[in-house]
């Protein structure tokens, strides 16, 4: 358990160190990221890649916003409540491992949404590992460019660490967003023309009481104002506490959501 946590972190760091920043003209696309990562993450274990019944990944073929491309992983009934971990990998990003989600056993997840930066045309893949060790991978092709170097959005910057909870009308889905530049280190300040240093959320945890519902290791491939949305077969437990870890400060941002009696049908 502990060492499986360490590995993706190391892989991320290694990839960060070895890949040049995007945007230089003579650079060749990093097409081999998944092939390089697979042995580290999953060894020789078989990975099933077919069947829409169990799992699908949804991403726009041509993204409306490369700096904030919505990726949704849908789980069919055959996987609901059986997924213990989900990794999202963006092959051609400077930091391909976008996020690793560890789920509470039995959480009947129907969908997982996140918003990512897409640096260039790439495969986006999700790999789910079940509680009994089965591996399912689905991928989508996204055509985009420049998502890692797009300047901060025009929205007013707001308060660092401010959290927004946005429940769906039926109370089964909850979107969590945290106000944070999540600077990739590949952006340029439009005013000064200087590079913006990396500053991002490295971990997001959602807790119901003492129980960790979702534990996500994240990084610079998440968009500005990192956003995560869970959709479950069951109504979202309430209250839910969010903890977000800021890098490099190691500061912890927290916020708690309580379902309003009016919202949700149950």
């Amino acid at each position: 358990m502990t060492h499986t946590r360490l590995v993706p972190g190391l892989v991320t760091a290694a990839v960060l160190l070895t890949l040049p920043p995007s945007g230089t003209a003579d650079e060749t696309p990093a097409v081999g990221a998944w092939q390089n990562m697979r042995p580290h993450l999953y060894g020789e274990r078989p990975i099933s890649e077919s069947g829409d019944e169990l799992m699908t990944i949804e991403a726009p073929a041509s993204t409306p916003d490369p700096a904030a491309t919505a990726v949704t992983v849908h789980f069919g009934e055959g996987l609901e409540g059986r997924v213990r971990q989900v990794r999202v990998i963006i092959d051609n990003n400077p930091s391909p491992l976008a996020a690793t989600f560890t789920l509470r056993p039995g959480l009947a997840l129907e969908a997982l949404d996140l918003r990512v930066r897409i640096d260039r045309y790439t495969s986006v893949r999700a790999i789910a590992e079940t509680t009994d060790g089965q591996l399912e991978m689905r991928s989508a092709w996204v055509n985009a460019a420049g998502g890692c170097s797009t300047p901060p959005s025009a929205a007013p910057p707001g308060t660092l660490g401010e959290v927004r909870f946005r429940p769906s009308a039926d109370g089964h889905a909850l979107q969590v967003s945290i106000r944070h530049p999540n600077n990739s280190g590949f952006q340029i300040d439009p005013r000064s023309g200087d590079p913006i240093p990396p500053h991002f959320i490295s971990r997001l945890r959602l807790l119901a009481g003492d129980e960790v519902l979702v534990d996500a290791e994240t990084g610079i491939s998440l968009s500005e104002n990192p956003t995560l949305r869970l959709r479950s077969r069951d109504p979202m437990p309430s209250p839910l506490k969010l903890e977000a870890t800021d890098i490099p400060s190691q500061q912890l941002f927290t916020a708690t959501w309580t379902a309003s009696p009016a919202a949700g049908t149950r």
């Binding site: 995007s22 945007g23 230089t24 003209a25 460019a145 420049g146 170097s149 797009t150 300047p151 952006q187 340029i188 300040d189 439009p190 005013r191 000064s192 023309g193």
Partner: peptide, 18 residues
């Protein structure tokens, strides 16, 4: 615009490649 040079710098790869 004062921000044009920075905008151009960040768009350079797109403008050249595409």
């Amino acid at each position: 615009h004062p921000q044009l040079p920075a905008a151009l710098a960040r768009s350079r790869a797109l403008l050249v490649d595409t």
